[in-house]
Amino acid sequence: MAEVHGCNIPEDRYYWIEKHVWAKPEGDVVLVGLTDVAQSLAGKIIVVNLKSAGKTLARGKSGGTLESGKWVGSIPTPVAGEVIEVNGAVKANPGLVNEDPYGEGWLLKVKPSNWDEDAKALVTGETGVASYREKLEQDGIHCQK
Rank of each mutant, 00 (worst) to 15 (best):
V129S: 12
S74T: 14
A92H: 09
V37H: 01
V90N: 02
E99L: 06
G33T: 07
H20C: 09
P94T: 05
Y102R: 00
G43T: 00
V86W: 14
P76M: 02
K24W: 11
L31F: 13
V110E: 04
G73P: 09
P25C: 02
G73H: 15
D116P: 08
K109W: 11
Y102M: 05
D100V: 03
L122T: 00
G105K: 07
E18F: 10
I84F: 02
E11R: 10
I45H: 07
K55A: 11
H20L: 14
K111I: 00
A92L: 14
V29N: 13
A130W: 00
K51D: 09
K55I: 08
G27R: 03
E99H: 04
E126P: 00
V48C: 02
I46T: 12
A42F: 10
G43A: 06
P112K: 07
Y132H: 15
V21H: 11
S52L: 13
N49W: 02
G103N: 03
I84Y: 07
T127Q: 15
G33P: 08
G54M: 06
Y102G: 03
P76E: 11
R133A: 14
V30P: 04
E104K: 15
E82C: 10
L41K: 12
L66Q: 10
K19W: 13
S52R: 11
G95I: 14
K91N: 09
N93H: 15
G69T: 06
G69R: 14
D28G: 01
T56H: 12
Y15A: 11
S74W: 13
L66S: 06
S131M: 14
Q39G: 05
E117K: 15
G64Q: 06
Y15R: 07
E18Q: 15
E99V: 04
E11D: 08
G125R: 13
G95N: 09
D12N: 15
G69P: 00
E26F: 08
T35N: 06
V86P: 08
E126W: 04
K51Y: 05
A80C: 07
V72N: 12
T124N: 09
P10Y: 08
A119R: 12
D116A: 14
E11P: 06
P112F: 08
V48D: 01
E134T: 13
K61M: 11
G81N: 01
V97Y: 03
G81P: 05
V129W: 13
G73S: 13
G95D: 10
A92E: 12
K70E: 13
N87H: 01
G105H: 00
G63D: 03
K19P: 03
Y132G: 05
K61D: 13
V90M: 08
H20W: 11
H20A: 12
